[in-house]
């Protein structure tokens, strides 16, 4: 119950105080440059990686990136920069 209240409070604050939502709500921030780069902040760790697929753990659910010739250019605890040809970005509940 308390968690839900907190969530509501944050949602209200972001709506009314014009604060960036990714900071307030721990959502991933995804920046893409065409098909070739994808930069994901606020992830919670790597789940699977191959040259056709990248699966990331988020605070809520998972993120699946599909494509081919994937190379992780940088990986930090909460950031990842992926290079290759990106076809799909899918949220999995």
């Amino acid at each position: 119950m308390a968690k839900k209240w907190g969530h509501l409070l944050r949602s209200w604050m972001t709506n009314n105080m014009e604060l960036p939502q990714d900071v307030m709500m721990d959502l991933p921030r995804i920046t893409m440059i065409g098909q070739i780069h994808i930069y994901i902040e606020n992830h919670r760790g790597l789940l699977a990686f191959s040259d056709k697929e990248l699966r990331l753990l988020l605070k809520q659910g998972q993120l699946l990136v599909k494509g081919n010739a994937f190379v992780i250019k940088t990986i930090l605890p909460e950031e990842i920069l992926l290079e290759g040809k990106i076809d799909q970005v899918i949220y999995i509940k």
């Binding site: 760790g45 790597l46 789940l47 699977a48 990686f49 191959s50 040259d51 994937f70 190379v71 992780i72 250019k73 940088t74 990986i75 930090l76 605890p77």
Partner: peptide
């Protein structure tokens, strides 16, 4: 469990880059 291994590395501040996968269960970085 290569992914898990990479997660532990990054969490402990070992910077790695140019992670490439070569077929299943083989990754170079």
């Amino acid at each position: 469990g290569i992914e898990r291994f990479i997660n532990t590395l990054t969490r402990d501040g070992i910077s790695i880059w140019n992670v490439k996968s070569h077929g299943t269960h083989i990754v170079t970085f």
